[in-house]
Design a protein around this nucleic acid. Structure first.
Lengths: 333, 333
DNA sequence: TTGAAAGCGGTACCAG
DNA sequence: CTGGTACCGCTTTCAA
């Protein structure tokens, strides 16, 4: 008995239960404005179960004129435990507020292209990490019904709420710390991997800011995440004559530290090394790695901001500085 | 001049262009079955641009009866560079085939609940990593129109295509390698962090399988990803009298190796240590960490499987073993 | 308490 | 070449 498994609709449920589609809708949504007799309810639920009925989200939100979907572009780069944890908390918190979080796989779409693609889904809110979104993009999203657009990035965008995560603060911490430890010739690792510029540029800038007006000099150090690249950099270290380095993050720091040690350089005596992100990793190195601890916003807070914005779409865009940075000094500086 | 930014529809475009909605649809979709005069096309495009018109995906797929959405549950645990890379490749490849990948934030939904939630979106295909999906769930998804359901996990599920990623193979590799190096009292780290059981259990099982029938003994070692936990384990190492350990993955391996070294144990003389996943990390340790290199399926291949399955939904479910595991011996074993 | 019917935004058939 | 129109699945008045 092979049935063609045609997707059951509410009409099928209605037919099987011997009621109208309206009644089905009332029962399955527990509509309070209307009283349905207990026997009817039972029949409807029974029929729905039997058919394996699942409502059609698109049809529903088409009719309703809005959805509860919060859209985020899926990050294209491997993402650390920090951001992962933040994302989980956010999803959980938004889930509690009855939103559905969807990460949209935006590959190769540029700026406004991407915004348009997102807009086709008519999300009620859009959260955009990084700087992928311009004023134009915000406009597109809003025009297509997004009641809240929130950017998580270095600078605010007109018309959107902003969680300002200024990674310059990370660099500032690191720069000030190194200077305070008496270092004056300071290298800053800039990863060659693409997609990281959004973080690496501001971190570099931050170091420059912290050292501006002092007698310290900053040297930019391009570095790919490979042993060869690190070895190359280490090999010319003595001629660079740097006495400290801010290595972008703990992983690059470990890579470079290893290479420097293999070159016979002592840490921290010859070179002070500091990373960022405060990964477990750094505590396990010898010497223990100093790092800049980065505090992301709480997912719960962001969820509440989203909810607030959705409920009051006319409100002034909120702008929060949310990136806490503080040095954790260990043994490498 | 504050306009109420009512989302423009194709009717608005039609009105502005002075044509019918049908014509708008034809023009914007480049419908080949129908010829529209060049001036008309221009007027339509012009109007669409001016209004900032973005089509409504839900309405479109409602009418069409299907979407091009490939849905994946968003992973709840921090995910390494391996899986990240795989995901990117997959998104890219599916994008080329004109599918849209969406990661659905499934928090706290259990089994069939989750499947039903996914089904509401009427995705054309669903890719499920891990073992979160049962036969029932597959049925729900298929009944609601999913033309392909693919599981990426330890075992196949009835009715779904399967990319069998049997992490037991990872454990087998490690176990056989350690045994081959003459080790007989072998510890296996089992992370205490929840969400990792899906990988850690099979990896442990694999070691047991590799050592079954030999004179080697396997000891299960619960370990949390903290320095304290590692120190506790290392402190009682001598009484455990193990001469080798498979540390679940490279990160746990580093954590444990550090603790063992701090206890004065020599690696590999006193204890052989092997990790898994072949992270850059391991190459930077001293001694260099031996590891099990894990080969995930290619995102392109999976994309093609999905496409094939979507085009021929009646076809027999394909089952592929796709997890390659091979030992990379370095200095720690 | 229940049913009939309109309509959300698009698409595609059929007429003109 | 273009317009009218039915319909996808669901919700929600409005009547009965």
């Amino acid at each position: 008995m092979v049935q063609i498994p045609n997707t059951p609709t509410s009409a099928d449920v209605a037919r099987l239960a011997g009621v109208s589609r309206a009644t089905v809708s009332y029962v399955l949504n527990n509509t309070s404005a209307v009283r349905i007799s207990e026997p009817t309810r039972r029949r409807v639920h029974e029929a729905a179960r039997e058919l394996g009925y699942v409502p059609h989200a698109a049809a529903r939100s088409l009719r309703a004129g809005h959805s509860r979907m919060v859209l985020m572009p899926a990050p294209a780069i491997p993402v650390g435990p920090l951001y992962s944890g933040f994302l989980n908390e956010l999803q959980w918190a938004l889930g509690r507020l009855d939103y559905t979080v969807v990460q949209y796989g935006t590959v190769g779409l540029q700026g406004d292209e991407a915004a348009r693609a997102w807009a086709e889904l008519r999300p009620v809110a859009v959260l955009v990490p990084g700087a992928e979104l311009g004023t134009q993009g915000v406009r597109v999203l809003k025009r297509s019904g997004a009641r809240a657009v929130v950017t998580l990035g270095p600078e605010r965008v007109d018309g959107a709420h902003a969680l300002l995560m200024d990674h310059a603060a990370v660099g500032q911490c690191a720069g000030a710390h190194l200077h305070g430890r008496g270092r004056r010739r300071i290298g800053v690792v800039v990863p060659e991997e693409s997609g990281l510029e959004a973080y690496s540029r501001p971190r570099l800038t931050g170091v420059r800011q912290a050292l501006h007006g002092t007698d310290a000099a900053v040297t930019e150090l391009p570095l790919a995440y490979t042993e060869e690249s690190a070895a190359r950099l280490a090999a010319k270290w003595r001629e660079l004559a740097l006495d400290a380095v801010f290595a972008y993050n703990d992983e690059y720091a470990m890579l470079l530290m290893r290479a420097l040690q293999d070159e016979g350089l002592r840490i921290p005596e010859d070179v002070a090394v500091i990373g960022a992100d405060d990964l477990m990793l750094g505590r396990l190195l010898r010497p223990r790695l100093s790092t800049v601890h980065v505090e992301l916003p709480s997912g719960r807070d962001l969820a509440e901001l989203v909810d607030r914005a959705v409920r009051d779409p006319g409100g002034e865009p909120e702008v929060h500085r949310v990136l806490g940075a503080s040095v954790v000094r260990r043994e490498s500086t």
